[in-house]
Design a protein around this nucleic acid. Structure first.
Lengths: 271, 271
DNA sequence: AAATATATTGCAAAAAACAGCAATATTTAA
DNA sequence: TTAAATATTGCTGTTTTTTGCAATATATTT
């Protein structure tokens, strides 16, 4: 029943894609561009189906658009121009703006003559960078980069907790460090974490780091967790602590954000 | 019923093949990069699981990203650039070539499995930079920049002697540091000095630094002085030690240089 | 040194890209 | 308007890329 089949196809086409008949090459390419802009990526097969042309046609279209520098053709599809990271000129720190925001919020906890401890990691490093210069502080740290940063602060007395240095995390770890930490008690410690989950608490990739963080928490009256929201609801193998030992959690989100719901009835101050 | 058939087929397709989770290579690499930046360090196995591809694919992706200098591949995983790229950017080190020469000569003293201590200062920093990579070392230090440099050496275990950090010398000083130093004994310590004179010995501008250097010397079986010849025959307020506690003195000069005459009958090895 | 984990290599299946060709559609010229 | 020229599109078979697997080699840990 060829006739019926054709009629049915036309009907389907009209339902799924009303203006198919009038689709010229230019239109089609426009539609492709639109799709790429919208979703940042697109598969050739999807495009072919959606535009109801053969895959070859789509391929040719994408090729042309690529030649015109309107998108980037990749194996199996296309991505928007910004998507492919070719350029070496990238900011060194991931999500720097978020981390700066977190650091600013965290620094409001500081009082004159506070004794604090700043952990390693890029977020904590931002805190070190943004420490207010009008408040006199005594600051312990285990992190080489944080220490470097703190040396630039005239109002901060910096004490480095020594120990074996971990190549990856650039912090002091090991028995030595833990012993030294056992002898101090700071007002606030500001720590980062690799992973955090409302149920499983803070977890890490590295066992040694976990031991050190535990010692840090023990050495603090109050522990403040600095953590960008992307890390929420993730976990790894080694557990640092439960969330109930954390006094304050600082993310880049507003405290009432829905993503923080899981942390709201836990006696944690959200900042 | 052709109509029913087609509709049913569509339905089946949707059920059996909901989204196919098809991912473009670029997307996947983007995700990998994101994960690395987020957590600083990831395992290939974790990536493979998370992205639902084989470990081979992840490995190949990471390899490519490494080749593009977007991350650093390590055994079993990847780390973000920030953790290994301490781009030194040492621009204005005075008499750098001389100090490099000194460091090279000093490094000939090293043996496999030596336990050494490297002091602060630009000359010692050059030594840290030029440590041979074929000799396994355990290396103590009080200097932040030296520690940073040592972390880039895969064959060196680095232990930082903690303490209050001195802002201008970027080394740990104070009672804490001296206590910690009292508990170790290294094969060689490599120290710098502000001023040296055949008669008055090693002297410094800073009293705290002197105390620390004394403790360093006590913590060493042999003490090696790294010192550019310009500092010879100069002195300052606070005395670190006499020259007879120095085992080896390394300058950029040849050992038989006339400028070293004053040090030749002092039981000091000249290098 | 043994045991485990990770890398490397070659290979094969699947997917995608490509090139050439024929059918159709569109434009141009008479 | 018609006919020729040109462009577009879909199809075929071939080549290339991607991916996963297995065997082997290397690295790391105990």
């Amino acid at each position: 029943m060829k006739v019926n089949g054709i009629i049915w196809n036309c009907f389907l086409l009209l339902i799924l894609n009303p203006n198919k008949n009038l689709m010229l090459k230019e239109e089609r390419q426009h539609a492709i561009l639109n799709e790429v802009e919208l979703h940042n990526r697109v598969l050739l097969t999807d495009l072919a189906e959606k535009l109801d042309v053969s895959i070859d046609t789509v391929r040719r279209d994408v090729k042309e658009l690529d030649a015109e520098n309107l998108l980037t053709k990749v194996h199996g599809g296309a991505v928007s121009l910004g998507f492919v990271n070719h350029s070496p000129a990238r900011s060194n720190v991931y999500a720097l703006d978020k981390k700066v925001g977190i650091a600013k919020k965290a620094s409001t906890l500081l009082r004159n003559n506070s004794v604090i401890l700043i952990d390693g990691g890029t977020t904590c490093l931002e805190l070190a960078r943004l420490l207010p210069t009008n408040i006199k502080l005594t600051c312990f740290t285990l992190s080489l980069p944080v220490a470097m940063e703190l040396l630039g602060k005239p109002n901060v007395e910096t004490i480095f907790i020594g120990g074996t240095l971990s190549r990856d995390s650039q912090i002091a770890v090991g028995a030595n460090t833990i012993n030294a930490l056992a002898q101090i008690k700071v007002d606030y410690s500001f720590i980062g974490t690799g992973y955090v989950d409302a149920e499983f608490g803070l977890t890490e990739f590295d066992w040694e780091v976990v031991q050190t963080k535990k010692a840090v928490i023990n050495a603090s009256k109050k522990t403040v967790l600095l953590c960008i929201s992307e890390k929420l609801n993730s976990q790894h193998r080694f557990k640092t602590c439960d969330l109930n030992v954390i006094s304050t959690m600082v993310t880049e989100l507003e405290p009432w954000d829905k993503k923080l719901d899981a942390f709201k009835n836990m006696n944690i101050q959200l900042l």
